[in-house]
Simulated scan of single mutants.
Amino acid sequence: MTRTLLIVSGGAAAAVAAARARDLGHTVVVSDSDPQAPAFAFADSCLIADAHGAVETAAAAERYSRKIRKIDGVLCLADYALAAATVTDRLRLPGLPLHVAELASDRLAIRRCFQSAGIPAPWHAEISTPQELQRVIIARGKAVAIMPVENLGSHGRQLMTDAEDPAAAFQVTREASPSQRVMVEQVPEGTPVMLDCWMQNGACQIAGNADTRDIAGRAVSALGISDGPAVCEIVMQPGSPQVTAIAARLGSEAFLDRAIAAALGSP
């Protein structure tokens, strides 16, 4: 049976998902603020909406679902979990609970969850001025990164080892944050490993190194995600790996068919 899938954001990964969903016989709607978004080429319908604005995306989806074609499911392949969850909440569709998406969209809240659950993660702090950043660099060296408090992936993230002017870098990162909030984090030594995770009834499956399944599953569970996709970055260190990043979204194509089915309400 043909169903209608909304994909929030229209980047390269979304283009792959849109093409696959159409191959499976579904109608595909893609929302993005960029009229030239790659996934629009594979969409049956396009919505111009900024995924950074969860309410804007939800309003556009609601209008489409009410006036043009009923949306049956929502999929997100970029760091816009809150926008996707706002849509599913408003349209009463399967998806991440809104309060979990809000948590997963805030790096400081994520770190507090990790601390409560005993999950190893790098040292971090919120900073409000370039002077605070300079004091951190003096105390901890330049092996630190600054980033928006919002969990926006690599957007606005800067390594201080690459920054000629930390004060200018701070201003750039603050401008990249919708709330003008900045945090600094130690960059641990070691090789980062990106893991695609799939949670089902609280059990974690991963595409990648099976040795990291336990810590990845604990990290995803700490955010309250019991079902659906997540992406977890782990830095392998002697003795204890550290979870350096996590996102409540689909990563590679490893679990794509499963994610499409789950979004549309199939087991």
Rank of each mutant, 00 (worst) to 15 (best):
L133T: 12
L133N: 08
Q134Y: 03
R135Q: 12
R135F: 12
V136M: 13
V136K: 13
I137P: 00
I138F: 07
I138A: 15
A139H: 14
R140H: 15
R140V: 00
G141S: 14
G141A: 12
K142E: 11
A143R: 15
A143N: 15
A145C: 13
P148Q: 11
E150H: 09
E150V: 04
N151T: 10
N151K: 07
N151E: 06
N151I: 09
L152P: 02
L152G: 12
G153W: 14
S154Y: 04
S154W: 08
S154N: 05
H155M: 13
L159T: 02
L159Y: 11
M160P: 07
T161W: 09
D162F: 06
D162K: 11
A163P: 03
E164V: 02
E164T: 08
P166G: 00
A167P: 07
A167I: 07
A168L: 14
Q171A: 15
Q171D: 14
Q171C: 06
Q171V: 14
V172A: 13
V172M: 12
T173G: 02
T173A: 14
R174D: 08
E175A: 13
A176T: 12
A176H: 13
S177W: 01
P178D: 11
P178L: 10
P178Q: 10
S179C: 04
S179I: 04
Q180S: 14
R181M: 03
V182M: 12
M183P: 11
M183N: 07
V184M: 05
E185I: 08
E185L: 07
Q186G: 08
Q186W: 08
P188E: 07
P188A: 07
E189D: 15
E189I: 09
E189G: 12
G190Y: 04
G190P: 04
G190D: 10
G190F: 05
T191Y: 02
V193K: 08
V193H: 12
V193E: 15
M194Y: 06
M194E: 12
L195H: 03
L195S: 01
C197M: 04
W198Q: 01
W198E: 03
M199G: 09
M199Y: 06
Q200W: 06
Q200P: 02
Q200K: 14
N201I: 02
G202H: 06
A203E: 15
C204V: 14
C204D: 03
Q205C: 09
Q205T: 13
I206F: 00
A207Q: 07
G208E: 01
G208F: 03
G208D: 01
G208Q: 03
G208P: 01
N209H: 02
N209F: 00
N209Q: 11
N209R: 12
N209K: 08
A210K: 02
A210D: 04
D211H: 07
T212R: 00
T212M: 01
R213C: 01
R213L: 02
R213D: 00
D214L: 06
D214T: 10
D214F: 00
I215R: 01
I215N: 04
G217I: 02
A219G: 08
A219S: 15
V220C: 06
V220E: 06
S221G: 15
